[in-house]
Amino acid sequence: MNKILHILETVKDPEIPVLSLVDLGVITDVVVDGDTVLVKMTPTFVGCPAMDYMKAEVETALQQHGYKPHVTISFEKPWSSDLISEKGKAALKKYGLAPPPDNKLFTDLEILETATCPRCNGTNTELKTPFGPTLCRALYYCHSCKEAFEQFKPV
């Protein structure tokens, strides 16, 4: 099982190449039966255009190691930004993307109004638009750096 997780660790989010699918939290179930591996995945956003690509990447990675993958997409355990691991959040920040705040706090939309700047860690920031360049990113402006930055949206 650990071996399988190691293989899956090598598959990265095509939009954020520092983040593995395991740390992103989109792999929701792995069952190993001999050389057959059943993987359940769930999209970050229902309309995520990268889902088919990620599924194919998982299949290829497992096949390269001699496994017979069977990957299905399921909403049984829906993705939420809370499923991003601590390691994943650190990788996002290093990449220049503000990690999402705890989704449990996201009962009020006011939490979206400011975010911590991944460059200067300042909070003198302002939400420009919750719709960034991809479905999972919001656009902010940091008044300290006087530059825009993106945040991985809490969902």
């Binding site: 229902v46 309309g47 420009k128 638009t129 919750p130 960034g132 360049p133």
Partner: peptide, 20 residues
């Protein structure tokens, strides 16, 4: 431009949701 992106993003969400 922000509105352009917002409506495009919502379009992508909605079409994706219809597919599901």
């Amino acid at each position: 431009l922000e509105e352009d992106i917002a409506f495009s993003s919502m379009a992508q969400d909605k079409v994706g949701q219809s597919l599901a």
